[in-house]
Lab assay of single mutants.
Amino acid sequence: TTVKVNGTKYKFDTPEEAQKFAKKAADKYNLKVVVDGDDLRVE
């Protein structure tokens, strides 16, 4: 599972880890998590 934040992709072994990271990033930058198929985007 990958998470894309500000054009940078981060790869995670499990969707749970990816979800946690995406949520933290979204909170930090005051953005929202967008599900894109198997991957997540923070925008």
Rank of each mutant, 00 (worst) to 15 (best):
Y10L: 05
N6C: 15
K20T: 09
K4M: 15
L40N: 02
T14G: 04
Y10V: 04
L31S: 10
E16K: 06
G7A: 05
L31H: 09
K20L: 12
V34S: 07
K32W: 08
D13Q: 11
T1S: 08
A26P: 01
T8V: 15
G37R: 04
A26T: 03
K20N: 11
V42G: 02
N30K: 11
A26C: 09
A18L: 01
K20I: 12
D13W: 05
A18G: 03
D27N: 08
V35K: 11
Y29W: 11
T8E: 08
A25I: 15
V34W: 08
N30A: 07
N6R: 10
Y10H: 06
K28C: 15
E16Y: 08
E17D: 09
G7C: 08
P15T: 09
Y29I: 05
L31T: 13
K20P: 00
N30S: 07
K32F: 11
K23G: 05
F12V: 00
L40F: 10
G37N: 06
N30T: 03
A18T: 01
P15F: 15
V3T: 00
V3E: 00
V42E: 03
Q19D: 06
V5D: 00
D39V: 14
R41Q: 05
K24H: 13
K32E: 11
G37F: 04
D27S: 09
T8G: 06
T1G: 04
E43F: 08
F21K: 01
K23E: 11
D38N: 13
Y29S: 06
T14Q: 04
T8D: 06
N6M: 13
K11A: 08
G7M: 06
K20V: 10
F21N: 02
F12S: 00
F12E: 01
K11Q: 11
T8H: 14
T14K: 04
D39G: 14
Q19C: 15
K11F: 14
D38P: 11
K23T: 08
K23H: 10
K23I: 08
N6W: 13
Y29D: 06
Q19M: 15
K4L: 15
R41F: 07
T2A: 06
L40G: 02
V5H: 05
P15E: 08
V34T: 10
F12C: 09
G7D: 06
T2S: 08
K32S: 13
K20W: 10
T14D: 08
N6E: 05
T14Y: 04
K32T: 14
K32R: 09
N30G: 15
V42I: 10
D39S: 12
V35D: 07
E43T: 11
G7K: 08
T1R: 11
F12K: 00
E43C: 13
E43K: 06
G37C: 04
D39N: 11
K28M: 14
T8K: 15
V35T: 10
V3C: 01
N6T: 03
V35G: 07
K23S: 08
A22E: 01
F12Y: 01
Q19I: 14
V42K: 02
D39Q: 11
